[in-house]
Design a binder for these strands. Structure first.
Length: 603
RNA sequence: GCCGACGUAGCUCAAUCGGCAGAGCGCCCGCCUUGUAAGCGGGCGGUUACGAGUUCGAUUCUCGUCGUCGGCUCCA
């Protein structure tokens, strides 16, 4: 999570500790499995891992034993010794270590790093030794194992991981650990993990009755409960208002489509494996639609278009279905049915930059609305080796459109990072990476250029000279999908939504039965004013009613007892625990309506 | 899909060595009439995910299926 600012992680002391802890772990593992083959073991965020090829699978008991042995090793106070050697010498040392030999060859010949990625220059080969363990490694390490405190590291989990990240390669066993400078830091980190669990959207979604999954319905197919339905409605209202002002037009398209459409769009050959299999009707194959774009292209093409009509912005909260592999599903973040905040913008080439930046503006507006402060714009480009496979085979247009995106981002003064080989098959894109409050990173908004589909669909408009011209298409989804967005918002707000998004905005609480009718009448008046409210007239004590409302994170509690009823007033308790007595109802209504209409996080 | 762990009431969890499946919350009924985070009593609620196997006997051991979780891979 939080690394010290400024200093690069690779240069930090913590990095050395973790890197060294990985070597100590490898020593411990190889003592238990002398025939095991070590591969690589780098530091990662918050810790380190080491991948092994072992004769059997590790058990939780093994982890305990390994951790115990690691404590003994570090307390042996062994120096880390670095030696620079030639490739020949290295190969002799690691003669019976196939993975190490492959690494050495990579370093020697191609200049490949430990992940198999190309390096700029041919690196020197060095080995590090501590106690009985020797590893090919560029370092750096701490000077002595005593710097790894026996009470400041912990083995976390074991998982499968493919050699060099390629699922066609052998699956190795990856052992994850966390390591810190001292015991206090470790405890803080473990505490942070506990806190993070409380904000997990899966837990909050259940507690706040936002969504549920049912085995019988199917994995990755969320059922939105009434409270979730409200959040969805509010997000759609936000999108609709925003898009109306930005000149978008709303369309609606069906959930299934003939095979022909997806063949034409080019999706089928690329993504057949991650789509629901087809259903056959009257000899024709139909698919659940995995995205909306082909249908929007059809709408664009449904009549003649003039340059005067452009840009044309077609928006739809379309429900799409994708067959995500079972192991990839994750709460609401990765699902098989999703409602996308989708739109396709058709532009002439000279309109591209303005429209592209217009979309980026939209993100930034939304980010500020949701208080998202940390984000990174990732400019994803094609990879040359994927042309004709992962990517449409037209290098000239790739280079051209990538330059257009780069120029737009620079002219728009928007910071971004360039990433090779992560584009969509039809063009370069900007993905926005953000971090939830529990430090989970994922991609929300996306903004993609498409030069391929307009050609495949033969899209055209009549230009100023009376000739046909092909538009470019911008795919965009600033609010991502309802699923991912709401999952994110749950974590981000820890379930305490701003008033406008709260499923229940106010709960009226009567102190005794005498006030039940008064409470009901207040709730009715609130609802008449567009505030989502209910009255709790159950037989519970006031304290219990308040607790229930707090647990559901309802922003406003209107408490009414004898005094309030006689004075025709209310007592306001806010979710943050503050309270104000002798409130006129009209005053509260004005306050709530103000918060709602401004969509502010303020209570 | 792959590796590993897990699956007990609506929810959160317990159940010794293989020996009658339990608690709190929620829900229903009753009592209490209450002043800013849980008032009291009673009741209902279970094919221990599903299916086989071992056993006199399986929540417990074995196998398979389904689902969830931690990762890997993937994400138009």
């Amino acid at each position: 999570m939080a690394q010290q600012a400024q200093e690069k992680y690779e240069d930090s002391y913590l990095y050395k500790i973790r890197h060294s802890a990985a070597h100590v772990m490898a020593q411990a593992v190889l003592e238990i499995f002398p025939d095991g083959k070590p591969t690589i073991g780098p530091p990662v965020e918050n810790g380190f891992y080491y991948d092994f090829d072992l004769p059997r699978n590790l058990t939780p008991e093994d982890l305990e034993q390994i951790e115990k042995r690691m404590r003994q090793i570090v307390q042996g106070k062994h120096d880390f010794k670095k030696t620079v050697i030639s490739a020949e010498e290295a190969k002799k040392i690691f003669v019976d270590q196939p993975y190490k030999l492959e690494l050495i060859e990579g370093l020697e010949k191609g200049g490949l790093d430990e992940y198999g990625n190309p390096l700029n220059e041919k690196p020197e080969i060095s080995i590090y030794q501590q106690d009985t363990f020797t590893d090919v490694c560029r370092g750096p390490h701490v000077a002595n194992t005593k710097e790894i405190k026996p009470d400041a590291f912990k083995l976390m989990s074991v998982a499968g991981a493919y050699w060099r990240g390629d699922e066609n390669n052998k699956q190795l066993q990856r052992l994850y650990g966390t390591a810190w400078e001292n015991k206090k830091q470790l405890e803080e980190y473990l505490h942070q993990l506990e806190e993070a669990k409380k904000r997990d959207h899966r837990k909050l979604g259940k507690e706040l009755e936002i969504f549920t999954f049912d085995e019988e319905v199917g994995p990755g197919l969320p059922l939105w409960l009434p409270n979730g339905g409200i959040v969805i409605e509010e997000l759609e209202r936000l999108a609709k208002e925003t898009e109306e002002q930005a000149g978008y037009l709303r369309v609606k398209t069906p959930s299934v489509t003939k095979e022909d459409l997806l063949l034409r769009s080019g999706h089928l050959p690329y993504y057949a494996e991650s789509m629901y299999p087809p259903m056959e009707l009257e000899g024709v194959k139909y698919y659940a639609k995995p995205m909306n774009c082909p249908m929007h292209h059809k709408i664009f093409g449904s009549k003649g278009r003039s340059y005067r009509d452009l840009p044309i912005r077609l928006a739809e909260y379309g429900l799409c279905y994708r067959y995500e592999k079972s192991g990839e599903l994750f709460g609401l973040m990765r699902v098989r049915s999703m409602q996308m905040n989708d739109a396709h913008i058709y532009v002439a080439e000279d309109q591209f930059e303005k429209e592209f930046l217009g979309v980026t503006d939209l993100y930034l507006k939304y980010f500020s609305l949701f208080g998202i402060e940390k984000y990174v714009m990732r400019f994803s480009k094609h990879g040359k080796s994927g042309l004709g496979k992962k990517y449409v085979d037209n290098e000239r247009l790739w280079i051209k459109t990538e330059e257009m995106v780069r120029r737009a981002m620079i002219n728009g003064n928007i910071p971004f990072v360039e990433v090779e080989d992560e584009a969509a098959f039809y063009g370069p894109k900007i993905d926005v990476q953000i971090w939830s409050a529990i430090g989970r990173e994922f991609t929300l908004a996306t903004n993609q250029v498409d030069f391929a589909q307009p050609a495949r669909f033969d899209l055209k408009f009549t230009n100023r000279d009376g000739h046909d011209e092909m538009p470019l298409c911008i795919h965009r989804a600033p609010l991502s999908t309802h699923e991912r967005m709401i999952g994110f918002l749950l974590e981000h707000y820890a379930g305490a939504f701003p008033v406008w998004l709260s499923p229940e905005q106010a709960r009226v609480i009567s102190i005794t039965d005498e006030q039940n009718e008064y409470a009901e009448s207040i709730a009715r008046e609130l609802r008449a004013n567009g505030i989502r409210a209910s009255a709790d007239v159950s037989s519970q004590r006031m304290n219990a009613k308040i607790r229930n409302a707090q647990v559901m994170k309802i922003p406003y509690m209107i408490v009414v007892g004898k005094n309030e009823m006689e004075a025709g007033q209310v007592s306001l308790r806010v979710r943050d625990g503050s309270q104000q007595n002798g409130f006129a109802l009209g005053e509260f209504i004005a306050k709530a309506k103000d918060r709602i209409s401004r969509r502010t996080a303020e209570l």
